[in-house]
Amino acid sequence: MSVFALVSAAAAAAGEAAQGAAESSGGLPQLDFATWPSQLFWLTLTFGGLYWLMAGRFLPAIGGAIEERRDRIADDLDQASEFKRQAEDAETAYNQALAEAKAKAQAIAADTRAEVDSEIADMQAETDAKLAGRLEKAEARINDMKAEASAKVAEAATDATRAIVEKLIDEVPTDDAVARAVANIAR
């Protein structure tokens, strides 16, 4: 029922519309050739004018801006890669300098160590020599004192021997005989 009503209403509306069209003009307004010259004139004016402005002014301006931006971006990229290259060069130089410095530092350390070692060795040698000298001197003194002491002991022994012999036999022995006797015992 409702569908039927809709269709009939639509048909009525369409009929009315078609009637209106028939009333308003004899045919399509598009085929009313009397209006063509005016439309062509204004089309030529507006389209031609627009083409003139587009070709002469607007499009070169837009294209120029796009082109300029492209150039600028390309330039910037070039510059960026140039900077990158420079940075890499600097890094290489830095690494090289660092390696050189390290090598130099190691060399200096080695030199210093060698120097210090030799100095220590010198000082030790000197000290050793000094000590050895002192030791020698001390030994010599000890030997001297030993010899002196043994000489004194021998003298005392000789004196004692002479005194003992004198007491025993009341005779003074010769120095030679006493020395021989003491030497025989001391041996």
Partner: peptide, 10 residues
């Protein structure tokens, strides 16, 4: 109701 053709009238 305007005719559907009226909109094209010069």
């Amino acid at each position: 109701v305007a005719s559907p053709m009226e909109q094209f009238e010069i």
